[in-house]
Design a protein around this nucleic acid. Structure first.
Lengths: 353, 353
DNA sequence: AAGACGAATTTGATCGATCAAATCGCGCCT
DNA sequence: AGGCGCGATTTGATCGATCAAATTCGTCTT
C-alpha cells in the first residue's frame, strides 16, 4: 500500500525540477533531449502516472466529454445510439479523452444534470442526441458557452446549414435514395414507401429521398405510414395486402426504419410474397438476423465527425468555439447493405461513403 | 464570463467560514440549523456548485465507476450489455456516482487502460464484464486492492460461491429451467435444446437448466449445438429437419440464445412448422420483433446488485472491501417472457424474480 | 461564580499538478 | 573580454476543496 509517485518523486529521481517533469509530459519539445530521456526513464522506473484530479484543478480542463444515455425502452431503435456511444468512446480514447455518461428522464432533468457537470468542471464538452424542434438544451448550452455538438440536425430551423450550433448527422435522404435506386434497378419500377407520420424531422428527410429518386426515374409507387413498431407495420401492411392487387403491383418496399421493415417483411411472407424486397434503415441486428437489406448509418463516422468538430481535426483538447466564426457541421453519407432472406450470411455493400 | 463561485464566496455571503460551508455540504448534521439555513440560502443565491476536481484532489475519491465498452461487433449479443450499461448509469446517478467508459481491444489493453485510470485516480471502482477462465484482470485488480465487481461468475474456479472476488450474475440454469417447464406444460414432453459447444461457462449453465428440468419431468428431448449465429442455427436445424421425423417428434425447442432461437424459428417455419414453440435467451429486440418467447435477464437488477456490492446497500461512496471478509455475490433470477408469433404485441411474464 | 465539558465554528495545512516569472548557462558578436 | 540574447531549467504561487487541530461559545455542575 505505497503512495503513488508524484512529479516531485520523479523530479528527484531524475535530478531535475518538478516543472521539467511537467514539461516532458506536456511540452516535450522545449526540453533538451538528454534531460528528457532521463526524465522519461525515471517515469518508467517509478511507473509514474499524473494525477488526473490535480491536473484538472490546475488546468481547468477535464478532458472528458459527457453524453446522455437514455433508459432502455425496448425495441430496436436504441441500438443505433448505442453503437454511436461505443464509437464515440473509442475515438475519444484514441484522442486522449474520456467519455462520461449521465442519465436523465427529460430535457429539464438533462439540463439540471448538465448544470452539475458543467459547474463542477467535470466535462469539457457535451454531445447531445435526439434534438427536437425548440430544444431548450441547445440554447442553454450556447448561453453558457459550453462546447457541444448535436447528433441530429437542428430540425425546424430556417436553414439547417446555417444553424446556430455545430451538428453531425446522417444524410437520410441519400440513404433512402440509394435504397430506392437499388430497388428500381433490381426489382422493378413500382417501389413503395412505408414511413412514419409527417414530423418535419428525420422521417420526412428519408421520405424525400424515396420521392426524389422515384421522380427522377419517372416511376410511381404507393405510400404507407404508421408509427414505429413491428405490430403497427404488420397491421397496416396486412390491411393494404387485403387487396391482392396491391401486393401484386408492388416490386419492392423501402422503409423508414428496420422495425417497420421487419413488420412489412413478415406480412409479405404471410401473404405469400416472401421474396418481396424490403429495405430497412439503421442496419440493426434484426435486419442482419432476418437477412433484410438496410441502410447503414456508420455511427463510427458520426462519432469521428463529432470529435472533429469539438477538437479540431487533429487537436487533443477541446477548443471553446469562437463565437464569431460560424458553426460547422458534418453530414455523413450512409451506405446500403444488401442482403438476401435465404442466405443471411451473404451481404454486400452498394455505393461507398 | 464570470468566474464560478467558490466555497470562499459562499462563506463570505453567509458570514461564516469556508469549513462551515463544507460541513453543510458534507456533514450537515453537525451544523446548527440556523447557520445551515443561512449557508444553504447563500448557496442557492450564488448558484454555487462544488468543483469536482478540487474535491477529488483532496478527498482522493472520484465518485466514478469505470466500465469497458467493447467495440460493436454486429449481432445481437451486445444488446444485453448495452442495457446493463444503461441501467448502471441510471442507478449510479441516483446514488451520486458517475460512470466513465473506456474501450479496449483485449484483456491486456484493458489492463493498461485501467492502469491509467486507477493511477490517475479517475475511478474508484470498476465493473468488468465477460469474465473468462484464468482472467488476468481479476488478479490485477485484486493485487491493487481496487474495488470491483464482475458481471459474470468467475467460471472455472472450484466453488463459485466461494470466489475470490465479488460478482453479480444471472441464474442461467433457472432461466432455461423455467423455459423448459413452460414448454413441457404447454407444448408437450419432447422439448429439445439448442446450445453452444461446451465451454465450462455460461452455455453449460443454461444447458444444465434444461437437462435438470427434463430429468425432473421424466421427459426426453434431442440436443443440438453450434456456435452462435443465425446462419449457423439455420444450418444445423436444417440438417436435423432433413429427417422429417425429427421435426415431427419435437414439441418445443429451448435455445441458449436469441440468435440461435431466431435461426431455429426461421428454419422451422421454412419446414412448415411455424408454430413450433422456440424459446430464446436474453430477450433482445429481435425476439420481441419476431414474437419469440425469451428469458429476460433484467440487467436493471444486475446493475443494482453490482452497486450494492460496491457501495453497500445504502452507501453513497465506494468502500474498499475489507480483505478479511469474504467476497459477496448476487445471483439474479431471470424471468420468462412468453410471446406468440402471430401477435407480437401480446406477451406475458411467467414467474417472478 | 469559576471551571469543566461538549458542541459549533474557525484557522492553517495540504492534496498534486501547472502557470508565470525568475534564474541559469552558453554561444556569439563586437 | 564583456555583454547580449535565447534556450533550458528552476522557483514561487495557485487552482478549490477537505482534513486536522485549534479556538470560541454556551451550558451545566458544584
Amino acid at each position: 500500500m505505497v503512495k503513488p509517485p508524484t512529479v516531485e518523486d520523479v523530479a528527484r529521481a531524475a535530478g531535475v525540477s518538478r516543472q521539467t517533469v511537467s514539461n516532458v509530459l506536456n511540452t516535450p519539445g522545449i526540453v533538451r533531449p538528454a534531460t528528457r530521456e532521463r526524465v522519461e526513464h525515471a517515469i518508467a522506473e517509478l511507473a509514474y502516472r499524473p494525477d488526473a484530479a490535480a491536473r484538472r484543478l490546475r488546468t481547468r480542463r477535464s478532458s472528458t466529454i459527457g453524453i446522455r444515455l437514455d433508459p432502455y425502452e425496448g425495441g430496436i431503435s436504441g441500438v443505433l445510439l448505442d453503437r454511436f456511444v461505443h464509437a464515440l468512446t473509442e475515438s475519444a480514447n484514441d484522442r486522449g479523452m474520456r467519455v462520461l455518461m449521465y442519465s436523465a428522464r427529460g430535457a429539464d432533468e438533462e439540463i439540471s444534470r448538465l448544470d452539475e457537470l458543467v459547474a463542477g468542471a467535470e466535462i469539457d464538452a457535451v454531445v447531445i442526441t435526439g434534438t427536437f424542434f425548440g430544444d431548450s438544451r441547445t440554447t442553454w448550452l450556447t448561453e453558457r458557452n459550453m462546447p457541444f455538438v448535436s447528433f441530429g440536425r437542428p430540425w425546424g430551423g430556417d436553414d439547417v446549414f446555417r444553424a446556430s450550433h455545430s451538428w453531425v448527422d446522417v444524410d437520410g435522404a441519400a440513404g433512402t435514395r440509394a435504397a430506392t435506386e437499388h430497388a428500381l434497378a433490381t426489382a422493378g419500377p413500382r417501389v413503395g414507401f412505408l414511413g412514419w407520420p409527417r414530423d418535419a424531422g428525420t422521417g420526412d428527410d428519408r421520405e424525400r429521398g424515396w420521392r426524389e429518386a422515384m421522380a427522377d426515374a419517372g416511376a410511381m409507387g404507393p405510400y404507407f405510414e404508421t408509427i414505429d413498431g413491428v405490430a403497427q407495420a404488420r397491421a397496416i401492411m396486412a390491411t393494404a395486402f387485403a387487396d391482392p392487387r396491391v401486393l401484386e403491383e408492388l416490386d419492392a418496399l423501402v422503409c423508414v426504419s428496420d422495425t417497420l421493415a421487419v413488420g412489412a417483411h413478415l406480412t409479405a411472407t404471410d401473404a405469400g410474397r416472401r421474396g418481396l424486397p424490403v429495405i430497412g434503415f439503421d442496419n440493426t441486428p434484426v435486419a442482419e438476423a432476418l437477412g433484410i437489406s438496410s441502410v447503414e448509418q456508420s455511427p463510427e463516422l458520426v462519432a469521428a465527425g463529432a470529435l472533429d468538430l469539438l477538437m479540431g481535426p487533429t487537436g487533443r483538447t477541446v477548443t471553446p468555439r469562437d463565437a464569431a466564426e460560424p458553426p460547422a457541421h458534418v453530414l455523413v453519407q450512409p451506405r446500403l447493405v444488401v442482403r438476401s432472406y435465404d442466405a443471411p450470411l451473404a451481404q454486400r455493400t452498394v455505393g461507398d461513403n
